[in-house]
Write a protein that binds this DNA or RNA. Structure first.
Length: 291
DNA sequence: ACCGCACCCTGAGCGC
DNA sequence: TGCGCTCAGGGTGCGG
């Protein structure tokens, strides 16, 4: 599940493939709600353009183009943005992965889930976007156009302060976990890193946001920064679908302390970790360390 | 205004 | 072995 770290790693590694190259071909799948901008319009808008930068806001990637328009991408849950020159078992269905050595899986061929393919006016690799579940989004913004999705994003989780978090949590009766996932409060936090940060800060995910103290908000902001930065360092979490644009898996899944570890011992106090559904998201926590 | 929840989608993993 | 069911969840939007 691409969250801030995975999107940031993707940004850093895909930027060299995108920047300064003129887009010559744009191939898409059929219209669906994956395309907030209809494919026909998207193809027209992108052909001949050149990305001048690649920015990240929360979990969104934004590429300002040379005509002042912008290409906006969101990877959703299962989105993969990668070079056509790479392959990875994660690009294949489990059935197709079976038994194959990684080096035997050459030449990933675009399938029905490969929704966007950008080709360039040189001989280099293309940039492909694949998303089996289509929870991702592709959007083109005309010069000067804005989008409510971007406008409502709160401060980036990497730079948000404990004071901001404290202010945003006052009078809120929702669980602190749900508040962390609200992109208008903090941009970039998803289920994995919310759970990890709450454990790091010693705060139970189900606690009402308004009952989290100023000191705990400071601890939460610090834990978020620590967890997110460490994940970026290790290439993100490749738990199911996520791959780096260069086909290389992240390694942060090996450093998880609570996410997906229900029943296993807490690495701090050895108490078996618990799972509880909060706001339709599974939450993992230590009943002893997190109050 | 605030909050909970259904919905979009497909593949994995399970039970029978 | 194979089918069908359930679950996973980011973000949006609606109903209470």
């Amino acid at each position: 599940m691409p969250e801030l770290p995975e999107v940031e790693v993707t940004r850093r590694r895909i930027a060299p493939l995108l920047l300064g190259r003129s887009i010559r071909t744009v191939a898409t799948t059929s219209p669906s709600y994956f395309f907030l901008t209809p494919p026909v319009r998207l193809r027209r808008a992108l052909a001949g353009r050149r990305a001048e930068a690649l920015e990240r806001r929360g979990k969104y990637l934004i590429a300002p183009l040379d005509d002042g328009s912008r290409l906006v991408l969101h990877l959703g849950m299962t989105g993969q943005l990668f070079s056509s020159a790479v392959t990875s078992p994660r690009l294949l269905r489990a059935a197709a992965r079976g038994g194959l050595a990684p080096e035997a899986q050459h030449g990933f061929a675009p399938d029905e889930h490969t929704h966007l393919r950008l080709g360039f006016d040189d001989a280099g690799p293309e940039v492909w976007m694949r998303d089996a579940r289509k929870f991702g989004k592709v959007l083109w913004l005309a010069p000067g156009a804005s989008d409510p999705r971007l406008d409502r994003l709160g401060p980036d989780a990497l730079t948000a302060s404990g004071a901001q978090l404290f202010a945003a949590s006052r009078r809120r009766r929702i669980a602190i976990k749900s508040l962390l996932l609200d992109q208008a409060v903090l941009a970039g936090v998803g289920n994995i890193y919310a759970d990890e940060a709450l454990h790091g800060a010693g705060v139970r995910p189900s606690r009402a946001a308004a009952r989290v103290t100023r000191v705990e908000c400071e601890r939460l902001a610090a834990a978020l920064r620590r967890v997110l930065l460490r994940s970026i360092e290790t290439g993100g979490s490749s738990i199911r679908d996520y791959i780096g644009p260069d086909g290389i898996d992240g390694a942060y899944q090996d450093e998880r302390r609570v996410y997906g570890r229900t029943g296993e011992p807490c690495l701090v106090c050895a108490t078996p970790l618990r799972r509880r559904v909060i706001g339709a998201r599974s939450s993992h926590f230590c009943p002893r360390c997190q109050r």
